[in-house]
């Protein structure tokens, strides 16, 4: 059954998805498109970063048909995962340690959001200026 995968800020459709409990099996193409992670001989990689698959647990992650268990990979990386089976929507967040380390680095994390006219703005667009980031809400 196809699933919607929200991986961080990006939502995409995975036609190959097959859910079994907390396991979500995907084709390698859907894995790459939904998450940016790619299965390689040395592990699961994104850019220069590779996460080795524990050798004795490989069958938890990769099936003979080359489908990949994104749920198991998220557990390995300690990412928070929540899924709604009726709507076939999965959310994968950032691991708490990564978020904590990012905050304590004091580097302002970048983001891109639309303004009220729909134009995209990134924090990094304003490098070279002081920025006051101010939150509010209508409620």
């Amino acid at each position: 059954m196809p699933a919607t995968i929200i991986f961080g800020d990006k939502a995409s459709q995975a036609r190959s998805a097959s859910a079994q409990g907390d396991n979500l099996w995907l084709s390698l193409d859907d894995l790459r498109q939904a998450t940016g992670w790619v299965l390689k001989p040395e592990g699961v990689c994104q850019g220069d970063l590779c996460v080795p698959i524990p050798p004795r647990r490989r069958e938890e992650f990769v099936r003979p048909d080359n489908s990949f268990n994104l749920g198991a990979f998220a557990r390995l990386r300690e990412q928070p995962v929540v899924h709604d089976d009726a709507q076939a929507v999965w959310f994968f967040g950032e691991a708490p340690d990564a978020r904590r380390n990012g905050l304590l680095s004091l580097e302002a994390p970048d983001f891109t959001l639309p303004d009220i006219d729909g134009n995209a703005h990134s924090l990094s667009d304003y490098r070279g200026k002081k920025v006051l980031l101010l939150s509010w809400a209508s409620w």
Partner: peptide, 13 residues
């Protein structure tokens, strides 16, 4: 501002 300042309110709704 005496120097460039960018104010970027973000609306949490």
């Amino acid at each position: 501002p005496a120097q460039p300042l960018q104010i970027a309110p973000e609306i949490l709704d």
